[in-house]
Amino acid sequence: MTYSTPAFSPAADLRWEETSPGVRRTLVAYNDDLLLVKVAFEAGAVGALHQHVHSQISYVEYGEFEVTVGDDMRVLRTGDSFYAAPNVPHGVVARQAGALLDSFSPLRQDFLPAALPPA
């Protein structure tokens, strides 16, 4: 199957979903090889420690986060980024309200709405 968003994705058309208390996400754009997701956090919200088979690069759009990747923890702020290799545990705690832009390769099909048809 082939999945893809249209060439342009106006912000007004994005749909947000709550994933856990104080955390919500929207799929910005994707195809079979790449997915870009925006994740918004309220202060104190947690992106629980987890791992997956996808490569992940995350950019701190704004805010301040305690980020754990593997055995290392760092405080990241606006403009900082991190890389989580496949199958490496990682998670965040929002020290203040903020947002991350998460990119995944390949596409995380588990993030797609169940009723979404392929392109």
Rank of each mutant, 00 (worst) to 15 (best):
P6T: 03
A7D: 05
A7C: 05
A7K: 07
F8H: 03
F8R: 03
F8T: 03
S9M: 00
P10H: 02
A11K: 11
A11L: 10
A11H: 04
A12M: 04
L14T: 00
L14R: 02
R15K: 14
R15S: 12
R15H: 12
R15P: 03
W16T: 01
E18R: 12
E18M: 06
E18D: 09
T19A: 12
T19R: 13
T19S: 13
S20D: 05
P21Q: 06
P21H: 07
R24W: 04
R24E: 05
R25M: 08
R25C: 02
R25D: 01
T26R: 10
T26K: 06
T26A: 14
T26Y: 01
V28F: 03
V28Q: 02
A29N: 02
A29D: 01
A29G: 03
N31P: 01
N31E: 08
N31Q: 06
N31S: 06
D32E: 13
D32M: 08
D32W: 04
L34T: 11
L35V: 04
L35R: 06
L36E: 02
V37N: 01
V37I: 05
V37R: 02
V37L: 07
K38A: 08
A40T: 04
F41C: 10
F41L: 09
F41Y: 15
E42W: 10
E42S: 12
E42R: 11
E42Q: 14
A43L: 12
A45D: 08
V46E: 15
G47T: 15
G47D: 11
G47V: 15
A48S: 14
A48N: 10
L49M: 14
L49Y: 04
H50Y: 11
Q51M: 14
H52R: 14
V53N: 15
V53Q: 15
H54W: 09
H54A: 10
H54N: 15
S55G: 14
Q56A: 11
Q56C: 05
I57E: 09
S58M: 07
